[in-house]
């Protein structure tokens, strides 16, 4: 599905990612775990095309996408919910979804069916569709951001810190939603700093530190590796 092969990414002059490789298979949920500043967001930004690669390449469903602008990658079926949710604060939730409807018209992704699927994952969103993005709680924002990305029926969903700063009960609610998304046979790549949360949803886990993958494997077995545990716990 998604294949990242030895990429180097810079932010300005600073090299953030060093020969980073990872892959996400079909219907697979993969977590990228690391401390703040380890390179999780940079990895996601590289995948959606917000940062150019210095070397390496990224393929998606057999197609090299490293040279494409972000919106073309999105139209291929890469959904993204940013860390700050990226909602338009002046628009209501319904209007935020409306944007997806325009895009559905021009890109052929999404449509009625996917809207209904989204409603099934997040039934509570219908209670605040008329509220402005600005006035949503943190958890509501995250839900709307994921729902909005899901509207365009992606093949893979990239979630950047979806559980950060949320109350445990809300985290549980979101994890439940993520599991439902997984059941819809949509691949997931989740950047997460909390290993416990990551283990609740991940089929596979990558640990990242200083732009390098330091562990790759079963999320339940990472706890056995003391060195990795010390690093990702900071």
């Amino acid at each position: 599905m998604l294949e990242i092969s030895s990429i180097d990414t810079y932010r300005g002059r600073a090299q953030i990612l060093r020969q980073l490789s990872l892959s996400v298979g079909e219907k697979e949920a993969v977590c990228l775990v690391g401390r703040n500043g380890a390179g999780k967001t940079t990895t996601i930004d590289s995948i959606i095309g917000l940062l150019p690669l210095r070397s390496g390449k990224i393929t998606f469903r057999g197609q090299t996408i490293s040279g494409l602008p972000p919106y073309r990658r999105a139209r291929l079926g890469i959904g993204y919910a940013p860390e700050d949710s990226g909602l338009f604060p002046d628009l209501t939730v319904a209007e935020n979804f409306e944007i997806c409807r325009w895009l559905a018209e021009s890109s052929g992704r999404g449509g009625q069916e996917s809207e209904e699927r989204v409603r099934a994952i997040f039934p509570e969103v219908s209670q605040f569709t008329h509220r402005r993005g600005l006035y949503l709680s943190g958890g509501q924002k995250k839900m709307v951001a994921i729902a909005r990305a899901m509207m365009l029926s992606p093949f893979i969903l990239l979630l950047d810190e979806p559980f950060e700063g949320l109350a445990p009960v809300v985290v549980t609610r979101l994890i439940e939603a993520v599991r439902k998304i997984k059941e819809m046979k949509i691949s997931l790549l989740i950047a997460e700093s909390n290993l416990a949360n990551a283990s609740r949803v991940a089929d596979r886990l990558y640990a990242i530190d200083r732009g390098e993958i330091i562990y790759h494997g079963d999320p339940r077995k990472v706890t056995e590796n003391k060195e990795v545990m010390n690093t990702i716990r900071g």
Partner: peptide, 15 residues
């Protein structure tokens, strides 16, 4: 971030 959000939803160019 709004430009990023729109781009990541597939909005480019004139849209």
């Amino acid at each position: 971030k709004y430009v990023v959000a729109a781009q990541s939803l597939g909005a480019g160019g004139t849209l």
